[in-house]
């Protein structure tokens, strides 16, 4: 196979940025649901490098898919940075497929143009129209978790969102991962 390993500089500086959690209400009854929205973005290294140049380099080396595995969820806070009990979490994959596009818009001089398609969790395909849209589709995550008050228990609770993103080794860089937790929010369950 045609492997020419050429790591992209700064890939190790990939990080999770802007992780946040918000709730649909500050108080909830035991028999009521509450929605928590967790947002995060993968930033730096891989996001910066994720351009059509990188897609072409990978494609040329038969390295035609890039998978981002996310593990995202909500935890209870015990004290400060100490957390326990994952209340809800979800592990999922977003897959970018690099392919030779014949779109005359992407490729007005009819030469080779490697473009990307992203398949979201739930197998929804997205055909991004720009490099920025491709980055947003692959690296910006927003998930809503529905939790019953009874799952939290009576009382006041401090909660944090956690997020981990990981990827495998590719022609353009080593495998890696990044994780982060959000600031805490509180919710009272009556």
């Amino acid at each position: 196979m045609k492997y020419v390993y050429e790591p992209v500089k700064g890939l190790e500086r990939t990080c999770i940025r802007n992780i946040s959690i918000s709730s649909s209400s500050d108080t909830v009854r035991l028999d009521e649901p509450v929605d928590f929205t967790v947002k995060l973005s993968v930033a730096g290294g891989i996001r910066d490098a994720f351009t059509s140049d990188l897609w072409e380099k990978a494609w040329d080396a038969w390295d035609k898919t890039f998978r981002m595995t996310y593990n995202i969820g909500i935890k209870k806070v015990v004290a400060g940075p100490i957390t326990k009990d994952v209340i809800k979490s979800q592990k999922f994959v977003r897959r970018a497929t690099f392919y030779w596009s014949r779109s005359p818009e992407l490729n007005p001089d009819y030469s080779k143009k490697i473009w990307v398609m992203v398949v979201l969790e739930g197998r929804e395909p997205v055909h991004p129209k720009s490099v920025d849209e491709a980055k947003t589709t692959l690296f910006d995550v927003k998930k809503t978790f529905r939790v019953m008050g009874s799952d939290l228990g009576k009382g006041k609770h401090a909660l944090k969102a956690f997020g981990k993103a990981s990827w495998g080794r590719h022609i353009f860089g080593e495998k890696g991962n990044s994780q982060s937790v959000s600031k805490e929010i509180t919710i009272t369950c009556k």
């Binding site: 494609w59 038969w62 035609k64 497929t97 398609m117 197998r123 929804e124 395909p125």
Partner: peptide
Amino acid sequence: YTKFSTYWTDGK
């Protein structure tokens, strides 16, 4: 079409 398109990969 949408379901099928998620299997798109280019060959060697």
